[in-house]
Nucleic acid binder design. Structure first.
Lengths: 256, 256
DNA sequence: CGGTTCCTTGAGAGAACTCAACGTCGGTGG
DNA sequence: CCACCGACGTTGAGTTCTCTCAAGGAACCG
């Protein structure tokens, strides 16, 4: 399978499709705009970006920030490499997410964007973005919402939490992103390797493994490589709640 | 001294002064706008906010986000309290900084804003902000810049760094903020207690103390309570470089 | 002066890391 | 078809870093 479409609801994606048929159209910014603004947003988006294969970079830290991207399928990580040569994963971008927002107020990208999985990307040139923002308060509002959502997520994950809290929060966050609304014990497929998860959560790869093993011993999950089934989301949620990146989930509260 | 104006260049501040005479006018958003936009920005700002005393909160996490604030003097920390009762300091806001930007895309404040030091604040109601953004692309741009700057800072500080790297980066960052451009070994006055610094850097208070003591043993700083003199900024910078929140500093590079 | 808060230092505990080894999987080439 | 290789995931043993707990001193304030 050269192109992983499992997170999507459709298996018929093309690299030249219009936003109208884009499987992420409800998650992409265009989904929440008025008809007029949506048309203009879609008109500015270049959808014919070729697939990005695993490890290929969309842009590199330090490059002049020339565009913002929308993930249409797959998974992109944004990361930096410090002067000691250590990689730092700053976040994962799933279908519907915007990539490169942290460069909006700067001239250069502060982080690189690298495909974690073969991905399909839409490109929105910076000039077009400026025009859109200058002429539509609504688009501006929604963009602001995305940037500050990223800010909230970064601040939440940067908190001082234990390895178990981090991993639990990550699992629940990914579940919410990959199968939104599903309350039953869901089976999710983590697109990224353990190394990237660990790096993102500021843990060692081995620590993530050990925590997953411990969760499995406690019958809270069933893990098989990239596939994880959350058996006791409530237990995980009780651990992860302080981190604050997963939904309030009345259902879970009620069940607990 | 009921009102700490030391970071400012003037000692004659009033609680009703106009932006024209505001000591932070160059740091505040208004400093980088065109004359027309600046007038409108200043016109929307309510400058007659009473002093905020240490420990007093500007707003509390969960409240409906009704405004954005500009710090005119003093220091504000934004923080959350998780369900375990632990406080998490998300950032410090110094004169010229905007507070509450992480609520721009949400209906409620995700974090509380609490005075670390007696402070003076300007208030910008949300409605006014929307109007400004809808009618001035320039103001929108600058606001975007602030939000994504905050995002970059949060992402940088959330990296996986040692206690020494964190403290060194924090000292350099504060020096840059409190006495910008100064290259000579500067004496800075940290407005916040060790507890808040430690919490912000995700360390124990005692660890921050120990690191500062170690820096002092190595003749890299001279520390006396809230006053810190950076004797070897180059050495600190070599430690802090990977964190990436301090300036590139050609001078320091050259000297190193 | 007593009370409180903050800063500092020490000793021990614990969480996560490093180093190392091993099994699995998928791709590649003989 | 199968051996080989590299990347990834998992597990164990020992180490290191940071935290926790504890106590004392300094500064501030009523």
């Amino acid at each position: 399978m050269p192109f992983d479409t499992r997170p999507l609801n459709t298996s018929t994606t093309t690299s030249h499709g219009s936003c109208l048929y884009c499987p992420t159209s409800t998650a992409c910014l265009s989904g929440s705009l008025t008809a007029n603004d949506r048309n203009r947003w879609n008109g500015a988006l270049l959808t014919h970006i070729p697939l990005t294969h695993t490890g290929k970079s969309l842009f590199t830290a330090g490059e002049i920030a020339s565009a913002v991207y929308v993930v249409r399928a797959g998974c992109i990580k944004s990361c930096t490499v410090d002067d000691d040569g250590n990689e730092h994963v700053r976040g994962f971008h799933l279908p519907g997410d915007l990539v490169g927002l942290d460069a909006l107020g700067a001239s250069h990208y502060p982080a690189s964007a690298i495909a974690v999985t073969p991905s399909q990307i839409c490109r929105l040139p910076r000039g077009q973005l400026q025009t859109l923002m200058a002429t539509s308060a609504d688009i501006t509002q929604h963009l602001m919402g995305r940037v500050s959502r990223d800010l909230r997520l970064a601040l939440a994950i940067s908190g001082n939490y234990s390895a178990e809290q981090r991993v639990a929060a990550f699992l629940l966050y990914m579940q919410e992103r990959l199968s939104p609304g599903s309350m039953a014990p869901a089976t999710i497929r983590l697109p990224m390797p353990r190394r990237d998860i660990a790096n993102y959560l500021r843990l060692a790869t081995e620590t993530v493994c050990r925590v997953l093993t411990r969760f499995e011993e406690h019958k809270q999950i069933v893990s098989n490589d990239k596939t994880v089934r959350l058996l006791q989301p409530v237990a995980l949620w009780n651990m992860a709640e302080p981190v604050g990146i997963c939904q309030p989930r009345m259902q879970l509260r009620a069940a607990a």
